[in-house]
Amino acid sequence: MKKSLVLVVVWAIIVVFGASPVFAGSVSGTIKLGIAAPSMAPIKVDKDQEVCGKERVSDKLILSGDNGIANAMITIKGVTGGKKLDTAKKIEFVQEKCQFKPHVLVIPKGAEIDIVNNDPITHNIHTFARKNQSINKAQPASLKRFTSPKFTEVEQIKVQCDIHRGLMSAWFFVTDSPYTVVSDASGKFNITDVPPGTYEVEIWHEALGKQTEKVTVAAGDATLNVSLMPQAKK
């Protein structure tokens, strides 16, 4: 008798505060460039051409055919309750053909990552961390993989290989929000298990800066399509 009463109360609390994933929705959409695609000359590679190639498209702005923006980071702010941060997930950060993959990597706070070199040459992975322990390690071909220290602070971190400066750069986002994703090659994203409510969504892109949108998640799924505009220079 007593036990069942407790269960009922717990169930009631869950219903009232809407913390149950059962009632959560997802937010999905596409990030697009709001103006015509700029013309971008390929980067001329001046070292290690046999591995890096002779020419390369800049990582700075990758657009799909219909102006979808890859590598934009989308985060829903101020979510209370909902799903837990998954710090145990295995995350790989790969160097291949003188390119970091992925270009924008979301790292849950408290997680560590595996850093992999698939190239037959030495790279150095250099993180410009100010709060987390910074990394600058040489990774010759003989050191295929190593594990980073734990990322313990929320921070946006620039990453580069100094040896291949200008070719190899990336961004780490250490986040304490499980509602942070990166847009795919066509600019699409999907954030699942969002409890109902109205939230601010922050969209960041390396070449386009930050933009904030609003989204309301009711019982079902919400759609958020965003046009990013370049910011005026200060």
């Binding site: 700029p38 000359a41 800049s58 700075k60 200008g166 070719l167 220079k233």
Partner: peptide
């Protein structure tokens, strides 16, 4: 050589990036 390696374009002309000008 530009410090920073291969020349990176100012993608959006008068718009632009967070570079220190």
């Amino acid at each position: 050589p530009t410090p920073g390696g291969a020349v990176e374009e100012d993608l959006f002309g008068s718009f632009g990036q967070e570079e220190d000008s």
